[in-house]
Write a protein that binds this DNA or RNA. Structure first.
Lengths: 249, 249
DNA sequence: CGTTGACTCCGACGTAACGTCATAGTTTAG
DNA sequence: CTAAACTATGACGTTACGTCGGAGTCAACG
């Protein structure tokens, strides 16, 4: 048999054949005068065995042990193999669940799915800049909080999007977006008061969800992020909100 | 933030960070005088996004499209991703089924599982050489026949191992193994007659299972294999069996 | 003030299992 | 006689980093 013939019988490429020669998995057959390899039945049999073992998910480096080791396979290696396969499957299924959740929820793919769904209603009507900043916040929170904390936060987001609050929240958001060089102290103070009146308790809940342990990092980073993504008037507003909440405590 | 800090926050290694720089996935941050990288919040956010997307099974080369492409993900790419994941999962589950079957059946791992179970009872008491040859046959058949044909052959093997036949088959096998320079024409003829008497119809069934289409290759290779693994007396026996079966047709 | 441990940088090879050239010689059919 | 098909070797490409070697830097400790 020439290369192509044995490769065809085994269902592998000629390159694969040569690879197996290179790593010593398949012995080199004799050659004709012109250097062509001539395979015999023993080569085919060995090759078929290799192909079958690779189909089981066994790595090439382990195959000699399976093939040359006399005696039936140790149950251990099979169990190890089985466990490895199971782990891979579980990882892939986890990924598939995430992707499926994203496709169904149609949210941004780069944050935790529970956030993605909860955050979208809050984005309608907001300035693109604010939308982007909000998503970046969520990206940070998606990674810095654990599952339970994320669920809690998602619940809070859902509250905001609730029908009775929804309109109010959007209106406050728009007024925040509009803050800029044209805004005077009065406008900022009034907006801060309105925020605290309508969202004061919500913001305290939010704050509490970020306290303690590693969450402190999250709160710090969030604050830094806010400072990097707001203009002067908005910064002043944020500080006023903060002190307002502090004093009520 | 220095390398270790941002890497820790994102849960990746520093090497990973540098890799992302190299392939342009993560922009190089400014450096201090000594060359140390100083990361800012935007870097962290971008890194976290990358980490999340890789966790979805997206390859690094595709991530820029997901990240820089404005607009939500096209449903197509998610579907493609989902399909790829599903295929991988199915492949791994197939492998796991094969391995599990092997572990439970405790047969040799390098042949089709249906053969492995059926073949083992036939091996008890035979010469090691004969056992090896039989397994090599099965390796060949495992790959050259399709599923249905393998099941049919496994059924035939099971017949052989059947209780009423079992003892007879083993005895005939032992007599075949014993053929050698000491054996005279008489012994060979008698054995051939006995084979045909007890296994004639079985051997015809076996032959028929190998005829037609690609199976012809299988029959040819099996015959070659037999010729390479028998001594002169056994070859003579095989030819006598063959002509005996031919004449009865 | 020296040194020790932790941290940083860069370059470059290693990994798994082949795919894919590029180059060159051989055989066979029309 | 030429074109198609087959063979050979060598070497680089792929994925997502891990690991090593060598060297400079920084903070703290004794």
């Amino acid at each position: 048999m020439h290369s192509k013939e044995i490769a065809g019988l085994a269902g592998v490429s000629i390159r694969t054949l040569r690879h197996y020669h290179q790593i010593g998995l398949l012995p080199e057959p004799p050659r004709t005068d012109n250097g062509y390899r001539i395979y015999g039945l023993p080569h085919l049999i060995r090759l078929l065995r290799i192909v079958r073992l690779t189909a089981l998910g066994i790595s090439l480096s382990q195959i000699p042990a399976f093939l040359d080791g006399r005696t039936e396979m140790s149950e251990d290696s099979l169990d190890a193999l089985l466990e490895g396969l199971t782990r891979q499957i579980e990882l892939l299924e986890h990924q598939r669940r995430l992707v499926a959740a994203l496709r169904d929820g149609k949210g941004p793919p780069d944050m935790a799915p529970e956030f993605a769904a909860s955050l979208m209603p809050l984005e309608v009507g907001r300035e693109p800049k604010a939308v982007r900043a909000g998503r970046e916040q969520s990206v940070l929170l998606s990674h810095l909080l654990d599952e339970g904390q994320r669920v809690e936060l998602a619940r809070l987001y859902d509250q905001l999007a609730d029908l009775e609050y929804g309109a109010t929240v959007r209106e406050l958001g728009n007024r925040f977006d509009a803050l800029g060089p044209d805004s005077d102290e009065d406008e900022i103070s009034v907006l801060a008061d309105d925020y605290i009146a309508h969202l004061g308790s919500w913001m305290r809940d939010f704050d509490n969800a970020l306290r303690g342990g590693r969450k402190h990092q999250a709160a710090t980073l969030l604050w830094l992020h806010a400072l990097e993504n707001t203009n002067d008037q908005q910064k002043r507003f944020l500080r006023e909100i903060n002190s307002g909440l502090e004093s009520k405590r």
